[in-house]
Every structure is written in structure tokens, then in C-alpha cells.
Design a protein around this nucleic acid. Structure first.
Lengths: 230, 230
DNA sequence: ACAAATATTTAGATTAATCTAAAATAGTTT
DNA sequence: AAACTATTTTAGATTAATCTAAATATTTGT
């Protein structure tokens, strides 16, 4: 079936998948921004991927792109590789939270199905990655995720940290130092309309933490029923 | 220092290193043969690598190539990666003897120094690989190897299997089934001038084994003093 | 609804790695 | 030493991925 895709093509598909989580069609400029290439290069590439047999993308001039079934499958394969690798690098080789991403980004294109399966087995077929990301199943189904951005939480709401963006080592070290890791329960104490700052309290710690939008937009949470503070 | 080399360049350097173990200068045709590309492509590539600053190869038209210090260092780095990876895939992920080579051939170009170091640590800084190959040290010194080809052994000589070629899965399964693995001691019983067949007996087994030149040329051994059979 | 601003696409060039076919060199044989 | 053979090199073309600059759409603001 699926013929061999270059690392570059895999990166395009992965990027489009991630952008498609918040929007139905993705603009060429957004892709260019994330991949660090010129918009012109993206246009040429998406035209090519839409013209493949079978097509990996659905593309209409000036209207952006969406993944086809085929393209989505390829994207999920890479994302599964990436998330399994991150966990593996941490659990088996002792990498830290913030180190795993860069290494996984290179290895994800190169490992075989065999490698993927053996790693999954060693790790006990995990459903979530090191930073809380859902891991697509062996058959490439992405578990659905009812999470929302911490950015959108408001005072008195209670939630659980679900997932943090894995691609900024500095941010990861910062969050770890504050105790903001997947699983932790928190309550929003305060919100500022002017700068979108949120003041939070983590369960089990008396300390209060204030986070700006550039941080809270990188964190996904699972909402819980608002509770009255005891 | 060393700028980034493409996977392709790394494969050229690795190939030239291995060929240089038996000869001082390597012909473009030999390289083409092993890499599965045309001789013309090799000529172009070696010219480029000899023109880099610093040069990775020493090249004279029609006289073949040799690695420079710089080129050798790069080759040893890849070879260290390859051999550590093979061992790691076997020990940690449960790959079999014959499966590791193909996977290591892809991963070797992609892992970081960090990965290399952590793997070496997990494995206890091994000096030899899964098939008995010497592993260059962290500082890229190749341990010297006083081995010779099994092909050259003659009746009554006693030796120990040192290393078997890792790149033919079928041959590896065959050798494993016969018990020909690094460390095993054997005696040569018989040699045939006509077809270069060798008849051997492995220590601890009464069975006799006959091997042709296409097999004995893939096996390296350490000679021991000839002994009279007891 | 039109002009200005923004985003996207086209055109043409570049680089790395490869190929085939033709030309040149080296080695061998008589 | 001339001629033949085998190897190596040159020349020119091809493919994937990128770029810059120019052209063209689309969206937005008044």
C-alpha cells in the first residue's frame, strides 16, 4: 500500500494534522511558519501531495488544505512514533522531560514497524505520552480527547492538567519546576481580562501560581465540575 | 568543528573505511558496487568530499581514495553508532541476531551524541558488538584486531570465532543454527584446494561442519597455537 | 463596493544526489 | 610499442526540496 514518504513529506503531514485539530482547512502560510520554510515552498509541496496517487491532501487554490484518509493515516503513524519514542527515551534511556522532543523528531521518521511494536510492548502499550499527549493506537485511531485550553478556564473552575506542549524545552523545565505536569488537579482563583493572566492553586500545595496567556495556551486541561472551596 | 554530513555522505565514508581495512586505496568501482550506485556517481561524490574544507578524502584521479583524519573520524562515529545500536536492539528490545543490521543502518545517521552515550552506558560501555565487531571507543579509537579470515585457516590449526559479517540475515541464521557465534573455539580438520572448503569441529560438539569459501570469507577468527589432537 | 493590506501562487534558479552515454585513461597482452 | 580491454571520468539530464521576486487572489476597512 502506502509507498515510502520522505522525512520532509512526513513533517508536512504531521504539521497539517496538528493544525487541523483546531480548524477544518489549513492555510499554506501557517504551515510555512511552523516548518520554517517559505510560503512558496509550501504551495509547491501541497500541490504535489494533492496530486499523488492516492492523494494525501485535499487542496483548493487559496482555500487551504485538509488531509485525506490516506494523509491522515500517514500523519497518525508519525505521531504515534513520536509519542512512543518520547516515552521510551525517558523511561528506558533516562532522558529528561524537556530533552526528548528533539531526539524523537529525528527518530520518528526512521524507525520500522518492528521497532514501534517492540517499544510499545516494552512500555506496556501506553495510551498517553510523556507530556500527556494521547497516543494513536496500533491501528491508528486517535483516542478522543475532551480537553480544552487552560487559557479558557475561569475563576472557581476546577480541572486536571491533561497535556503540555512538548516542543519548548525551556517552557517544560519551567512547568516542571512549578509542578505543572499531567494529572495534577488545580483550581482557578483569578482571571485578568487585561492580560489574560490566570492565578491558580495546585492541589496539595498552598502556593499560588500566576501564568500568562503564552503559557496557558500551551496547556490542555480536562474540566471538572466547579466546586465551592472548602 | 565537524559540520553536518548527509546520510549519503556518511554511507560513503563508512564504506570507504571498511574497504580500507584490507587495502590502502579504494577504487571508485568498489564503492559503487557496495553502495549500489553507478561508478559515475561515486566519482562525482569523492571529488566533492576531497574538495570540502577540511577534506574528508584524499583523492587522485584514477588512483582511488583514502580517508583523511577528518573523514576517518566521521566514519568511526557512524560505525560506533551502528555497533552500539545493534547491541542495544538485541539486548533492550529483543531483536534477533539477523534483524538488527537493517534497523541500525537507518538509526545510525540520526541518533545524537546524547543517545549514543546513554546507550553505551545502559550496555556497560561494550568493546565488541553483537556479531563480535570491535566498537570504536567514545574517543573514536578503533581497538586493534588481530584476527584473520577463517578462509585462510588450514588443517590442525585451532582458533576462536571472533566476528561474523552482520549484513546478511540469511547467513546469520545459518551460522547461528550451526553454533558458529563469536567466542566459540574450533579446529580445522580438513581443507580442499579445489573448492576451498573447510571441514571444522567446534569445541564441545562432536559434529563436523563443512563450509565453503563464500561462508568462511565472512568470518574472522583469532588464531591459536596449532595443537596435536589428543 | 472599492482600495489597501495580506496571503497565496507562479516563475525561474539553486543544491544534492543520482542517472546514462560518451570520452579518456590505465593496464594487459601479444 | 601497439592494440585491446576494463575502469574511471566527464558531460549533460533528472528529481526533490528549497529559495527570491513578481504576479495574482482574497480579505478587510471605510
Amino acid at each position: 500500500m502506502s509507498k515510502h514518504l520522505s522525512d520532509t513529506v512526513e513533517d508536512y503531514l504531521k504539521t497539517i494534522y496538528k493544525l487541523s485539530e483546531d480548524q477544518s482547512r489549513v492555510g499554506t502560510g501557517q504551515i510555512a511558519e511552523i516548518l520554517g520554510v517559505s510560503p512558496a515552498s509550501v504551495t509547491v509541496m501541497v500541490q504535489r501531495l494533492a496530486a499523488e496517487a492516492p492523494p494525501l491532501l485535499d487542496y483548493t487554490k487559496h482555500k487551504g488544505v485538509a488531509l485525506t484518509e490516506e494523509g491522515q493515516r500517514a500523519a497518525l503513524e508519525i505521531i504515534r512514533h513520536h509519542r512512543l519514542l518520547e516515552l521510551f527515551l525517558h523511561e528506558v534511556l533516562g532522558y529528561s522531560w524537556d530533552q526528548v522532543h528533539a531526539e524523537a523528531d529525528r527518530l520518528e521518521h526512521v524507525i520500522s514497524e518492528e521497532f514501534e511494536e517492540r517499544v510499545a510492548e516494552v512500555l506496556g502499550d501506553p495510551a498517553r505520552g510523556l507530556h500527556g499527549e494521547p497516543i494513536p493506537s496500533r491501528s491508528l485511531v486517535m483516542p478522543d480527547n475532551h480537553s480544552s485550553f487552560l487559557l479558557e478556564m475561569r475563576p472557581n473552575q476546577v480541572g486536571r492538567i491533561r497535556e503540555v506542549n512538548d516542543d519548548d524545552p525551556g517552557l517544560l523545565r519551567f512547568l516542571e519546576s512549578l509542578g505543572i505536569v499531567p494529572g495534577v488537579i488545580f483550581q482557578v482563583l483569578d482571571y485578568s481580562v487585561y492580560d489574560d493572566n490566570l492565578r491558580l492553586k495546585l492541589e496539595g500545595s498552598p502556593k499560588e501560581i500566576v501564568l500568562g496567556a503564552s503559557v496557558t495556551s500551551q496547556i490542555l486541561v480536562e474540566e471538572a465540575e466547579p466546586e465551592m472551596a472548602g
